[in-house]
Amino acid sequence: MTAQPLLQITGLDVGYGHVGVLRDVALAVAPGSIVALVGSNGAGKSTLLRAISGLLRPSAGRIVFEAGDIAGWRPHRIVDLGIMQVAEGRRLFRRQSVHDNLELGLVGARLDRAAEAERYSAVYDLFPALRERPDVRAGVLSGGQQQMLAIAQALMRRPRLLMLDEPSLGLAPVIVDQLIDVILRLRAGGTTILLVEQMVERALEIADHAYVLQNGVVIGHGTPADIRAGDLIRRAYLGAGSEHATSD
């Protein structure tokens, strides 16, 4: 990576109350790339995304987006900079319609009418199934459509960094294929993507770079080929204390 990273995290410690979750995490995301963040349940992947989005305040370290340190900023200001997260579990506003959910992606965007119309048509082009039912309540959509709507909502703000937390969770394989297609199209359009995924192999297929997280620590990173060649994944998924377990 020769280009200046879009996002650079160094020495990051994050915890809930007195319980530390992330320790001394360092991570860099190059502009226009897909970076995958893999690791077992409870490794701290979602915690890292929550810290980047400003939902959690780090106790130490720097989160540098472009040139500025955003650690500890309030979430809406981080969104204003162009960082959007699609949280785990398709956190939509289920009582509101598809159209209203998209509109809620625009709160604080300060665009004129024409620019807004252009945003709607761009996300409807990416997700044609949503265009057919703008007045349906989000809560009654299928799981796949809800995930598409959640991503579409985040895209209304044209984020420069899109963070996706477990987008494939609970979706049928054919829907996951569509999702991967969308992620690749977004990268082709210039959006940088930080992808947290349980389905490691699917994530490595499309990632330019991957980080492996275990027990709140980055235990390694590299290209997907590097990751596959080493035993990082086995260590990350075969439980705690693996430093000792793999020493022989």
Binding site: S53, G54, L55, P75, H76, V79, D80, M84, Q85, A87, R91, L92, F93, R94, R95, Q96, D100, E103, L104, G105, V107, G108, A109, Q153, A154, R157
Partner: peptide, 18 residues
């Protein structure tokens, strides 16, 4: 609508820049 969004899911609203 933003108020209703906060009422339904505060964290999700924060993540949308509300």
């Amino acid at each position: 609508k933003a108020v209703m969004a906060v009422a339904e899911d505060r964290d999700a609203a924060l993540l949308r820049g509300i």
